[in-house]
Computed example of a mutant assay.
Amino acid sequence: MTRVVLVHGIAQQFKGSQTLLADWYPALCDGVTLAGGLGPGPDEVAMAFYGDMFRSAGHRGLGIPELDAADVEEGLERELLFQWWETSARLESRVPGPETAARMRTPDTVQRALNALSHSAFFAGLSERLMIYSLRQVRRYFTEPELRARIRDRFAAAVTESTEVIVAHSLGTVVAYETLCAHPDWPDLKLVTLGSPLAIPRLIFDRLLPKPTHGHGRWPAPVSRWTNVADRGDVVALAKELAPHFGGRVSDVQVHNGAKAHDVRPYLTAAETGQAINDGLNRAADRP
């Protein structure tokens, strides 16, 4: 009986559903316990895993192609990279920022952005090619319709009649949102988004399906309660509040995750996240 479905973000191509569950499940239970609830049993939680769809078949070594600054494509990849850079520089003094005169999107400037981000708390430890590969995954999701559909189908297959709560992180919040909008016939669900990029203008928000109208995204019909959790220092969740874009029914909550602001584990162990999950699991309380 799957009561909780989890949806991961980018750069998980070398893991699997059980590997991710081993990380996510204890943190989820800790958060629910801190909120005064009782965590779901391990057989009640499923991971909607799609990372393998980004894994190159038959590639030797790490399975990541040799990428450098010249491979960062014009458009979404470069614009997102520069938004990460500008935000990181604003939040972290050790990250050198872009000067106004040097904001041309050239390979040289892209290299400066990659070098600067290597000093940030979030990207520290990531190789340059892994940063670029992560950008590429976001771009591919939005520009390859067949891949996008397959990822959404993978999530849809994990949702059952017993599902009560969807917990999505990073790009997974986009996957969850679009799929929920495409299934208005699904029963009452609670949505918890963590470190979501959904409200980033132009790069993410304006590319959503269904397309937003007049600056407002459609409310996902199966969702009766939506809690969005963001850390102020999370450079992926550039727009911390979703309510201005998806309606006042979204409950926006800020937490502090420490140095790893975008890491899913501190998001899950936060009492605020645990409270949202716990509330979602108490469906009987919502009924007359």
Rank of each mutant, 00 (worst) to 15 (best):
T2D: 09
R3H: 14
G9D: 03
G9H: 03
T19W: 06
L21G: 11
P26D: 11
P26R: 06
A27Q: 07
V32D: 02
V32G: 02
T33K: 10
P40H: 06
A46R: 14
E66H: 14
A70E: 05
A70K: 03
R78D: 00
R78H: 02
Q83P: 00
A89M: 03
R90L: 02
S93H: 13
S93C: 08
P98K: 04
A101F: 02
R112E: 08
A113G: 15
S118D: 10
H119F: 09
A121D: 08
F123Y: 04
A124M: 10
A124T: 07
E128Y: 01
R129S: 13
I132H: 02
V138A: 09
L147H: 08
R148I: 10
A149F: 09
D153T: 13
F155D: 06
A156H: 01
A158H: 07
S170T: 05
S170P: 00
L171H: 04
G172V: 03
C181T: 12
H183L: 14
W186R: 13
S196N: 07
L208G: 04
G217A: 07
R218T: 13
S224R: 14
V236G: 01
H245L: 15
G248K: 06
V253H: 06
V264Q: 02
R265T: 14
E272A: 15
A276R: 04
G280Q: 05
A284N: 13
